[in-house]
């Protein structure tokens, strides 16, 4: 049996523990899809696989138990999925009957967003689609996740890039009845950015995370939604060396800025990646170049919207497994 493993891995097929048997990874950008695609996935799993699918942490599907000699045949079958879930978003695919064109950059995950969730500040799946169109296909191993609000339910803090929806709350003091629902709630569930002065609410803009809770809690529409923007947290990761949470890189950034920075990050990786390794995560590249180099290159050619703020320095937390001296 002769199989080019490098080739099939880039084609979104796995080398599994069982010889000759592979597993197909399906991308679902934004984690939301029309159920019509499930029919095809079911057919592949029943006819070629072992009748099961695995729901991945990245909101895709893996279809296990497929013989490697069926790869070409199944790639042909996948055309409607690649067309509907990738090409229709604007992802450039030259041959939709040849399976996935890359697997390095992982599926862009998203929380359920404002199609359902009252807390979400925007349509996360829609932005995930725009990001997918911008960065896929790509071989660099990058993980991006998008959340509707700073609750970060999709856990962008464990991703190379986590995008979170922010909204500028606009206060009309004429409509405020002084019930303090927003003040109490902000203190309880958010950052305590609101205070009550002279029977009206004062917002500390440096403390406000743009979560939108005050708008949701206000019974009188004294708080309403202003401009919607984003927080970008970067270089969170799990992994066997140095797990850590991402740190804020941008806040109050608009969509154009977010998309440009993501695009620039790929150029940064391309410039600095250690090509002697089979693969290198962007976070480890930043560890090597230092944050100032990343910041400069990520913002190259980007015109920040006036409200946007950029982290002056970065102190990623996290720990190194080999230095856990408390394991006695």
């Amino acid at each position: 049996m002769d199989v080019n493993t490098k080739k099939i891995i880039k084609n979104a097929w796995r080398v599994t523990k069982e010889r000759g048997v592979t597993c197909l990874r399906i991308r679902v950008p934004g984690g939301h899809l029309e159920v019509k695609y499930l029919d095809l996935l079911k057919e592949i799993a029943e006819k070629y696989g072992n009748g099961t699918v695995h729901l991945t942490t990245r909101q895709g599907f893996e279809i296990p138990g497929i013989q490697m000699n069926k790869i070409d045949e199944i790639n042909q079958m996948l055309a409607p999925v690649i067309q509907g879930l990738e090409m229709e978003l604007g992802v450039p695919v030259t041959d939709e009957t040849a399976g996935y064109p890359a697997a390095g950059t992982r599926n862009v995950a998203a929380c359920i967003g404002n199609r359902v969730c009252p807390f979400a500040n925007f349509d996360t799946t829609k932005l995930a689609g725009k990001v997918e169109a911008l960065i896929y296909p790509n071989d660099f191993h990058v993980k991006i996740a998008i959340s509707g609000c700073p609750n970060d339910c999709i856990k962008g803090h464990l991703h190379d890039i986590g995008v979170m929806g922010m909204v500028e709350p606009v206060y009309n003091q004429q409509r405020c009845i002084g019930c303090q629902a927003c003040v109490k709630n902000c203190r309880q569930v958010s950052t305590g950015a609101l205070s009550f002065v002279n029977y009206k609410v004062r917002r500390d803009p440096l403390r406000c995370t743009g979560c939108g809770e005050c708008v949701l809690k206000c019974p009188a529409a004294a708080w309403t939604r202003g401009k919607q923007s984003y927080r970008l947290v970067i270089m969170g990761r799990t992994g066997k060396k140095n797990p850590r949470l991402a740190r804020p890189f941008l806040e109050w950034a608009d969509e154009t800025v977010v998309l440009q920075v993501i695009k620039n990050m790929y150029a940064y990786i391309d410039r600095h990646i250690d090509r002697s390794l089979p693969k290198e995560h962007v976070g480890y590249i930043v560890d090597r170049t230092g944050y100032p180099v990343f910041r400069e290159e990520a913002l190259a050619g980007v015109t920040l919207n006036p409200e946007a703020r950029v982290a002056a320095w970065m102190d990623w937390s996290g720990y190194r497994y080999e230095r856990t001296s408390n394991m006695v």
Partner: peptide
């Protein structure tokens, strides 16, 4: 437009 409490919703007022 856009003044409903939930994002992407309008307020009739």
């Amino acid at each position: 437009a856009g003044k409903g409490a939930f994002s992407g919703t309008d307020l009739i007022a």
